[in-house]
């Protein structure tokens, strides 16, 4: 592996395939120009290679900066898989309506259980209906602007945390480790989406980035 290859592999660590291709092209072009300029000034081939590589600087520092502006492999995966989910949900009418009825069914069951005297189960089911409703409703709501997206996300988190607190009742604090574990995947996805919103122009946002 030559020195430039080594630099490129360090600078492109954890970037998505497309980002890696983009970085490789631009850095190779740059390197060639710098090398050519050094050769024109009378440097030897070795000296020209060395000066072109030195001018690029630290590959790890470049990698840190690239990861702030280009898609990482984890972000590209989330973007791809999140879209797949949305496509599956929205492409079948029956699936769309079945999903919408899940929170409604849970809510109806909780009401029935409450009047049947099983208040504990009613509380848990009501909490489940509450927590699930923003997740399922998200795909069907007309959220196509940043302002609507921001409002939806605030409401989503308030509703979901309230649902979980309601499910655990007065023991919520004792079970906080479980609450955090339950919410961790969502927190990770939310964090990745924040990063994606920063990196992509709004006209490139799929619907999931508004949610």
């Amino acid at each position: 592996m030559n020195a430039l290859e080594n630099w490129l592999s360090q600078a492109t660590r954890h970037l998505s395939k497309d980002s890696v291709a983009q970085v490789r092209t631009e850095i190779q072009e740059h390197y060639e120009s710098a090398r050519e300029a050094a050769l024109n000034l009378g440097a030897t081939i070795e000296a020209a290679d060395r000066s072109a590589l030195t001018a690029l600087g630290d590959a790890r520092a470049a990698n840190r900066q690239y990861r702030q502006v280009l898609l990482t492999s984890a972000e590209a995966r989330l973007l791809r898989d999140g879209n797949r989910e949305a496509r599956v949900f929205c492409s079948h009418q029956w699936l769309k309506w079945t999903l919408l009825t899940v929170p409604v069914a849970a809510l109806s069951a909780s009401v029935a259980l409450y009047f049947g005297g099983a208040t504990e189960w009613a509380r848990v089911l009501f909490a489940a209906a509450l927590s699930l409703s923003p997740l399922f409703a998200a795909f069907f709501l007309p959220i196509y602007t940043q302002a609507r997206g921001r409002v939806f996300r605030i409401v989503k988190w308030i509703v979901m945390i309230s649902g979980l607190l309601l499910a655990f009742g007065p023991d919520a604090l004792k079970w906080s480790w479980l609450l955090i574990s339950c919410l961790w995947p969502m927190i990770w996805i939310e964090g990745t989406r924040i990063s994606l919103r920063r990196k992509l122009r709004e006209d490139q946002w799929p619907k999931q980035l508004y949610l």
């Binding site: 630099w7 600078a11 970085v23 631009e26 850095i27 740059h30 710098a34 001018a55 690029l56 600087g57 630290d58 590959a59 520092a61 470049a62 900066q65 690239y66 702030q68 502006v69 280009l70 990196k199 992509l200 122009r201």
Partner: peptide
């Protein structure tokens, strides 16, 4: 005199900001 490898992330950022 800056390290040229850091120029491109700055260009990408300016590009994504329009």
């Amino acid at each position: 005199d800056f390290k040229e490898g850091t120029l491109y992330p700055a260009l990408h950022k300016l590009n994504s900001e329009g």
